[in-house]
Design a protein around this nucleic acid. Structure first.
Lengths: 251, 251
DNA sequence: CCGGTTCATGCACAAACACGCATAAACCTG
DNA sequence: CAGGTTTATGCGTGTTTGTGCATGAACCGG
């Protein structure tokens, strides 16, 4: 058994069963517990799973995606959201992607801000409805049940008409060479349409998303003009983005 | 059971039931009360729930959208919604107007129903996202902050393309001569577009809306094919609709 | 105010873990 | 092909983490 095979098998197992136990893997793959631990640690470093005491869990999805995702690193998300909210200026046309971080961003917008917000996310639309100074536009389309965003041809077509001042992307993965990535092909097209019509593209990514990649490429990293991340991101991880001329904001 | 899984489960439970009891968790998760207490304490520290004596509650005293209206005559609305949900048949294309009654209707749809639902209401879209058998389409447009529905040219245009089997209208006023009426001109155009493309038009109106009229006329009463109202509606108020050939369902 | 319940703290123990090192295989490289 | 280097693995050692139990304090309903 090659080590790469073993790791693939671990990821397979994780995908089908939703979790793996280190002890089980030790027994079934007939290697020492150390080796399994090493595998799990490196897969975690690569962003392919989430290491926990006793085993590992999928990095992004457990049972109820949106609700449970909201609780991952909430303070990091909140600080990123607050910092990102400062980017928005009076009178701008703002496009908001779906996701928990962008939802926090919506909530963090200043109460006296006047602007126009366009979003594919029903939860964001509802959160902003109470805001006195915003005109909120919902992008129509087929609803993706887990991510709670609209997708499909109608959404892409509607976004194609928009010339936004700034778009905020809640990215799933951000890699200096691979670029902005996501899990879902439909969502990819929507995000790409958002980017295409925007003057500024702000990526919101907490530090453990930096250097990771998801299956679907949304856009090259050069499409991003600003990156907002949390204080735990280290210099080394940020250097490649700075070198590419991307403005990096640490909350 | 990994400890992380256990905590996720606790948060899930909290999300669905609105509260958790420490004693229940001890029994169901088969760990000691100490462990549960530790979990709850740490989840509280992380800001993910609010610890109280005997269990835990959601941290945000859940502010549900348009909460004030939702509690007006809730039992009448709920019974109308349940009755109306029975109208929907397998495989149909259903258009749902916004409003609290239609939101109840969405929640009342049978779990095993397979259908396509199109709505202008973000809250309805979110409520239906968890439903396994439905394809949910959101009609895009400018969000009306108080009613939480999309309006405007984009919404009308999108609805013009739809040939629905049945549309459910949460009406503001229903009068045998004046017809279906509402308060808002923008909403009127959206409702009219819904009606234009639908084979059946079901009006949901509790008994005190019968015989009343609002400033803006949506459609003549003949556009309505079915009327669902509550048990308190009296024969005299319903007679005119029956005389016009409208099928009347009393919940 | 009182009895039962729930809670926090300290402690003990086992499982899981990280780290350093040794070994052997795989792989360059001249 | 010979010698050096890298890589993967397993083992020993000490540390951390998760859990359960005991004890006393805090809470609550009657």
């Amino acid at each position: 058994m090659l080590s790469d095979e073993r790791r693939s098998l671990i990821l397979d197992r994780l995908g089908t069963q939703g979790r793996v136990l280190a002890a089980d893997l030790t027994a079934e793959l007939d290697v020492s517990a150390d080796t399994i631990r090493r595998d799990l640690r490196e897969l975690d470093d690569a962003g392919l799973l989430r290491r926990v005491h006793g085993g590992a869990l999928p990095r992004h999805g457990d049972a109820s995606p949106f609700a449970s995702r909201e609780r991952r690193a909430p303070e990091a998300k909140a600080s990123i959201a607050r910092r990102a909210a400062e980017i928005v200026r009076e009178g701008q046309v703002v496009v908001l992607d779906g996701g928990t971080t962008t939802l926090e961003l919506a909530r963090a917008l200043a109460d006296d801000l006047r602007a126009s917000v366009i979003t594919t996310s029903p939860p964001i639309a509802i959160a902003l409805a109470a805001h006195p100074g915003l005109e909120v536009t919902v992008v129509g389309g087929v609803l993706r049940p887990d991510a709670l965003v609209t997708v499909g041809a109608a959404a892409v077509e509607a976004l194609r008409l928009i010339r936004a001042d700034v778009v905020f992307l809640g990215v799933c993965g951000l890699h200096p060479e691979i670029g902005v990535t996501t899990e879902d092909l439909e969502e990819r097209h929507v995000k790409a349409a958002m980017i295409a019509g925007a003057a500024e593209v702000v990526a919101l990514a907490d530090h453990d998303k930096l250097g990771t990649a998801m299956p679907v490429v949304v856009a090259p990293i050069t499409a991003v003009t600003q990156l907002v991340t949390d204080a735990d991101a280290d210099e080394a991880a940020l250097a490649p983005y700075l070198a590419l001329g991307i403005e990096v904001l640490r909350a």
